[in-house]
Amino acid sequence: MTSLGFLYPGHSAEDDYPRIEQLLGSDIRLDVVHTDIGEDAHRVDALLRMGAPERLTAGVEELRLTGAEAVVWACTSGSFVYGWQGAHDQVGGLARAAGMPASSTSFAFVHAAQELGLTRVAVGATYPEDVATLFANFLDEGGVTVTAVKNAGIITAAEVGTWGEGEVLALARAADTPDAEAVLLPDTALHTAAHIPLLEKELGKPVLTANQVTVWEALRLTSRRVNTPDLGHLFTRQPIIQA
């Protein structure tokens, strides 16, 4: 049994995790501990407070009791908002506090892009424009070129959590560009686990979503590889062949 730990801010789309656990198989357990979201706002100052060390470490002891072998801060905006080095410092502090390998959703996107050999991606972000731009800058620092950013301008995770398949697909389509090798949908407040096969079919290319890559990152930290096509191209272990 491989036990994976996730620190998830507040309550929005955490039900993606039991859905993903069911798809992965019986020997992998996903344990979610909720952190204090503070002010629910996709605003830089609020996001910096959301990802503060004291908020993350507050859930560490509960994760230890689950037997987790790795922990991922299941939040995109609450990590990339710190910048490349700041996000490294954030997960470094989390690893020390937890006594286990640690990462965040922001780094999960970069590592997943590297896994698939992606160099050019489009971003469909639920965030306001300034926050979406910070994510694009983070990807750029990770060696991933962003061809376009489509932002939905949503302020709260609570509103994002109400989106269904239609809204998610519309955002992905609006973000896509012909030269993008994949479409990225950040925000762990967005329900996507049930929609990935449809998204990839409709766009004709890989789609990376926040909760999907977060779980993949935890598996990577524990050196587990799982072939689960229902979770998209990322979980089939087939790199993109560059032209």
Results as ranks from 00 to 15, higher is better:
Ile240His: 13
Gly142Asn: 04
Gln212Asn: 00
Ala97Asp: 05
Ser26Lys: 09
Thr188Cys: 15
Ala102His: 12
Ala95Tyr: 10
Arg55Ala: 08
Gly143Arg: 04
Gly164Met: 08
Pro178Gln: 05
Gly204Leu: 00
Ala170Met: 09
Ile154Thr: 13
Glu217Tyr: 07
Leu169Gln: 11
Ala87Gln: 13
Ile37His: 02
Glu21Leu: 03
Ala170Glu: 15
Arg29Thr: 14
Lys150Ala: 05
Ala193Pro: 08
Val32Leu: 08
Thr76His: 01
Gly92Asn: 14
Gln114Trp: 15
Val81Met: 12
Asp187Lys: 01
Asp130Pro: 10
Ala210Leu: 08
Asp31Gln: 13
Asn211Ala: 07
Asn137Ile: 13
Arg237His: 15
Gly166Ala: 09
Ser104Leu: 05
Ala172Ser: 05
Ala132Tyr: 07
Asp187Glu: 13
Glu39Ile: 15
Glu21Ile: 04
Leu63Glu: 06
Trp163Cys: 02
Ile37Pro: 00
Ala52Arg: 05
Cys75Met: 04
Ala102Ile: 00
Leu94Glu: 11
Phe109Pro: 09
Leu198Tyr: 00
Thr133Leu: 12
Leu24Thr: 08
Glu54Gly: 00
Asn211Glu: 02
Val123Gln: 01
Asn137Met: 12
Gln22Gly: 09
Glu62Lys: 14
Met100Gln: 04
His111Met: 07
Arg29Tyr: 08
Ser106Gly: 15
Thr35Asn: 09
Val207Cys: 04
Gln238Ala: 10
Gly78Glu: 12
Ala175Val: 10
Ile28Lys: 02
Gly59Arg: 01
Leu118Pro: 00
Glu54Ser: 02
Ile155Gly: 01
Gly124Ile: 07
Gly166Glu: 14
Val183Ala: 04
Asp40Gln: 06
Leu169Trp: 03
Val71Phe: 01
Thr133Ile: 12
Pro229Ser: 05
Pro9Glu: 02
Leu116Cys: 02
His88Cys: 12
Phe6His: 04
Asp27Thr: 14
Glu61Lys: 07
Leu221Lys: 01
Ala218Asp: 13
Asp27Asn: 14
Asp179Leu: 05
Thr126Phe: 03
Pro239Arg: 10
Thr214Lys: 03
Ala193Gln: 06
Ala87Thr: 15
Gly124Lys: 10
Pro178Met: 08
Val160Leu: 06
Ser223Leu: 13
Ala41Ser: 14
Ala98His: 02
Thr156Ile: 00
Pro186Ile: 10
Pro197Val: 10
Arg120Leu: 00
Phe80Asn: 05
Asp187Leu: 10
Ala189Lys: 01
Glu69Gln: 15
Ala108Asp: 00
Met100Ile: 11
Ile20Met: 12
Glu217Leu: 05
Leu4Phe: 03
Ala174Phe: 11
Val123Ile: 14
His111Tyr: 11
Gln238Trp: 01
Ala218Trp: 13
